[in-house]
Design a protein around this nucleic acid. Structure first.
Length: 458
RNA sequence: GCCGCUAUCGUCUAGGGGACUAGGACGCCGGAUUCUCAGUCCGGAAACCGGGGUUCGAAUCCCCGUAGCGGUACCA
């Protein structure tokens, strides 16, 4: 094959892009980029009932967020109706297809009579409103040469003379796909496993039209935690949901790539460039995989920690809808090591932007007897610290520990609760430093005050 | 029903006849990091669906079964 590789991603806009679709898009993209081929985006919108413009926009939005670009399109399949009509006329002309007025009920009755193993064979009619069916041979088999599983043979007689166009002339999926793939010069079709049994139909259409078929690779499906095929009605995680949950596109790409594909040296963490360099469709596994968010979380944390601070700040800002200013940057710097998702950042840095939260449990847990005294001592120790930086703060607090002869946690936890309201925060010295001397002393003072008035909340 | 695909730890996987007392990663459990959480480091438990073949030898090849999944629309 000297043909330049040309792939296509062809989603149907009947809902948001879910992770299974996203993985298919990613694999097509990786295959194209790996070989320096082209990727065409085609929207399979021949079902007017279910296809909506909003869904198309959602899919484009998802692909853009994933940073998967395409070289051509989006091409509307419905927009190619004239080309479909032409191909249809040719088949009618050659006798490869015929009009048949049978309804679904008629077909059912026919099958009841001829046995379950036989595909329906209709009776040609001149009736203008009748649907158009493709003539399927009774003998022989149609073989799909699949890149992942080798040849897969399907007996022709198990297929109906299937409908390729409705009575009104609008075409159906298996016909449109075959025509489009051929006419758009697609050399390799990478799509979900759920299309494997439909491929013989497309091969039959291609043969009737005299087109050379593309190569096919049918990816194993992605299953939900219930083991079933992932679908929109599943409520399965859409790409947008992953974004809202605070995942990084690069981490999602890495994770999705690993669902069904692995390297022989067990590399897990791979930047996109490495994915592109190493990915080969023929290396994809054959068994369905289940989406497991835990591993995505871990992977995402790895990517987050490796981000340069400015990029990290920008990502957090975008997620929070804030400006990536100096204050946010300083907050991000002390939180970067601790968050696995962008969503987890705010609870850690919130105290720098708002008054301490009110968490009775945290307060009750650490504000025990002696806490007030310790906090008062800590405040005095912090007062003269200059510059107000982590190392200096730690040095100033150390003597307090000795004087009261308490373990570090005895002092630091009350301080943490005093300045953040929560028992969880970034490192205590860093937190104090970024909060600043004034606000720190003020909050510690408030806590001492609250303790002295006997408010030992439960 | 019919046609087809698939089957290694809970999950993602490596392994393609001897290198397998089956490797890695996530998760889980335990320990360390005398500030929380997270992270990091160390240690641990944890799998070849079942049965027949083929072979000196099978997780690896073949057959049957079982299970799961997909297709079987005038949906895509």
């Amino acid at each position: 094959m000297t043909d330049k590789l040309r792939l296509r991603f062809a989603p149907s806009p009947t809902g948001a892009l879910h992770i299974g679709g996203a993985r298919t898009a990613l694999y097509n993209w990786l295959a194209a980029r790996h070989e320096g081929g082209e990727l065409v985006l085609r929207i399979e919108d021949t079902d007017h009932e279910r296809s909506t413009a909003e869904n198309v926009e959602q899919i484009l939005d998802a692909l853009r967020w994933l940073e998967l670009d395409w070289d051509e399109g989006p091409v509307s399949q419905a927009g190619r109706a004239p080309a479909h009509a032409l191909a249809l006329a040719r088949l009618l002309e050659s006798g490869a297809a015929y009009r048949d007025s049978a309804t679904a009920k008629d077909v059912e009755a026919w099958k009841a009579e001829h046995g379950a193993g036989s595909g329906y064979r209709g009776t040609p009619t001149e009736e203008p409103g009748a649907a158009i069916r493709l003539r399927v041979p009774d003998e022989g088999e149609t073989v799909v040469e699949d890149l992942l599983r080798g040849p897969v043979a399907f007996p022709n007689r198990s297929y109906d003379d299937f409908v390729i166009a409705r009575g009104d002339g609008s075409v159906l999926y298996n016909f449109a796909v075959a025509v489009d793939d051929a006419e758009m010069g697609i050399t390799e079709v990478v799509r979900g496993d759920d299309h494997l049994s439909n491929t013989p139909k497309q091969l039959l259409v291609l043969a009737a039209l005299g087109h050379e078929p593309p190569r096919y690779a049918h990816l194993p499906l992605l299953h939900g935690p219930d083991g079933k095929k992932l679908s929109k009605r599943h409520g399965a995680a859409s790409v947008q949901e992953l974004r809202d949950a605070g995942y990084l596109p690069a981490a999602v790409r890495n994770y999705l790539a690993l669902l069904g594909w692995g390297t022989d040296d067990d590399t897990t963490l791979m930047p996109t460039a490495e994915l592109v360099a190493r990915f080969r469709v023929e290396d994809v596994g054959r068994a369905a995989a289940i989406f497991d968010e835990k591993k995505l979380r871990w992977l995402n944390g790895r990517f987050m920690r490796e981000l340069p601070l400015d990029d990290y700040t920008a990502a957090v800002a975008r997620h929070l809808g804030r400006e990536p200013d100096e204050q946010l940057r300083a907050a991000c710097e002390i939180a970067q090591e601790k968050a696995q998702t962008l969503e987890e950042v705010w609870p850690l840095i919130r105290f720098l932007f708002e008054p301490p939260v009110d968490d009775p449990k945290a307060w009750a847990k650490v504000m025990k007897e002696g806490a007030g005294e310790l906090l008062a001592a800590a405040a005095s120790a912090l007062e003269p610290v200059d510059p107000f930086e982590p190392a200096a703060i730690e040095a100033a607090l150390a003597p307090v520990l000795d004087r009261f002869d308490v373990k570090a946690g005895k002092l630091y936890q009350p301080i943490r609760v005093a300045i953040t309201g929560s028992s969880v925060s970034p490192g205590i010295f860093e937190s104090l430093a970024v909060l600043g001397r004034e606000r720190s002393l003020q909050r510690i003072g408030a806590a001492v005050e609250r303790l002295s008035t006997g408010q030992l909340d439960v």
